[in-house]
Amino acid sequence: MNSKTNKITIIGMLSAIAYVSVIICRVPVVLFLKYEPKDTIIALGGFIFGPMASFYISVIVSFTEMMTISDTGIIGCVMNTLASCAFACVSAAIYKRKRTLQGEIIGLAAGILTMVIVMLAWNYLLTPIYMGYPQEDVVKLLLPAILPFNLLKGGLNAAFTFLFYKPIVHALRKRGLIE
């Protein structure tokens, strides 16, 4: 199999694994906010193939989720895509430029920070629309609920990405699936 076919196949497999993780590993945290480890898998795809792979996996998983199990419609799909891309694409872009342990750590930290900022802004703007909450109530939730949730989510995803990246890359290289 050529490398382009391998890349497309692995991106498809990572998309499927990320989607399954949403179904079987969704954990309610606070209010309407749930943690699932899909962003870890999306970030792994980006670390292996670059930030565009993270983008593709994010869109595929968010769209599939919207069409099957989500009750938040297109706004939920957009929010999921934004959150995943903010974490995974930023992390992968930094790691792509500096493929070292330091680059991985800086990339993951920047991904957490970007996701937190993006999700605070988008929750402020979109949660009143799709959840029907008054804007004032959403503002009251930003610091005590949405900020800590996104820090927790980003921290867990970064830790899992950090732990699983090297073993997964070694396994894929050993089988000749990536360079």
Rank of each mutant, 00 (worst) to 15 (best):
T64I: 15
F87V: 06
G12E: 01
Y95T: 04
T127S: 15
M66W: 08
Y124A: 12
M115F: 14
L177R: 08
Q135I: 06
I42M: 13
S84K: 09
V29S: 04
A92G: 02
S84D: 04
Y124D: 08
M131G: 03
R26P: 03
V29Q: 00
V59L: 15
I48H: 07
I112A: 10
S62F: 08
L142D: 01
G76M: 00
K7M: 07
F164Q: 07
Q135C: 05
F87C: 06
L163Q: 06
K7Q: 13
F160P: 00
G155V: 08
A145Y: 15
L156I: 15
T9K: 09
C89V: 09
N80T: 09
N2C: 07
F49A: 00
I48E: 00
I146M: 11
K140I: 10
L101S: 14
L108W: 09
K38M: 13
I42G: 08
P28Q: 02
S3M: 14
L108E: 02
L141D: 02
Y19E: 00
S70N: 05
A88K: 01
N157W: 09
N80Y: 06
I105D: 03
P167Y: 04
N80Q: 09
S62P: 10
K34P: 03
G111H: 13
S21W: 07
I42P: 04
K140D: 08
M119H: 06
G132S: 01
L152C: 12
F63N: 05
V118W: 05
G45L: 11
V118K: 11
L108S: 07
I94Y: 01
G155P: 09
S91F: 07
K166H: 15
A159I: 12
H170A: 13
Y35N: 02
M131S: 06
L82A: 15
A121E: 04
F47G: 09
R173P: 02
C89F: 03
V59N: 06
C89W: 00
V61R: 12
K174W: 06
L120D: 02
V61S: 11
G50W: 00
I24D: 03
E65Q: 13
F87W: 04
I146R: 08
P51Q: 01
G176P: 14
G46E: 08
L101I: 15
E179T: 15
L31W: 15
M1W: 05
L82C: 13
K4N: 11
N150T: 10
I48D: 01
L82K: 01
Y35V: 01
F47L: 15
I10L: 14
E136R: 10
S84A: 15
P37F: 02
R99D: 04
N80P: 11
